[in-house]
């Protein structure tokens, strides 16, 4: 095996290997999360965040516009404070409603943002005033049973 042939094969090998890593990065994973697009912070207080986790997506009209950054408990108001990072190019009005939603019945939990009609926009570090907590399935079922029982008794 002479030197040129070995060099050729090693070159091919390295190119296939790097190609495999690029394939993994682009096709298998989503490299978008590596991008350090400039972001700004928003905050929202929820009564109940359900199964929301760090790095969960923040979506507006179903499009991912940011990620959950911090989740902590506010001992004064007994609410959950959720900090999110929103992409710099996306602005939301002051009366935006943030709700905790689930994609599908058992899917991932995310924050949905519905922009309102206010012309003033939320600035960096702003607070989303209107929030809607996570729907807890057990409570929903409990409510349904309670309603059923009360209407049944009135009959």
């Amino acid at each position: 095996m002479n030197r040129a042939t070995i060099d050729l094969w090693v070159g091919i090998f390295v190119f296939i290997g790097i190609g495999a890593i690029v394939f993994l990065a682009l096709k298998v994973g989503n490299l978008t999360s590596l991008q350090t697009t400039p972001t700004y912070r928003l905050e929202a207080a929820f009564d109940n965040i359900g199964g929301l986790k760090l790095r969960a997506p923040v979506k507006a009209a179903g499009v991912v516009v940011g990620r959950v950054d911090v989740i902590r408990f506010d001992p004064k108001t007994y609410q959950a404070l959720v900090g999110v990072r929103i992409d710099q190019g996306v602005q939301f009005s002051k009366d935006t409603i943030a709700s905790i939603l689930t994609s599908g019945l058992l899917g991932e939990v995310y924050i949905g943002l519905d922009s309102g009609g206010d012309t003033a926009m939320l600035a960096d570090g702003g607070r989303i005033a209107k929030t809607q907590s996570a729907v807890v399935l057990e409570k929903l079922i409990g409510q349904f049973l309670f309603d059923k029982a009360s209407t049944g008794g009135a009959k």
Binding site: I21, L24, A25, K27, V28, G29, N30, L31, S33, L34
Partner: peptide, 19 residues
Amino acid sequence: FWGNMQGGIDFWPDITNGI
């Protein structure tokens, strides 16, 4: 198939940890 894969696997940390 591809969409689920891309949605659930991040370059950082999943792929870099594998490397």
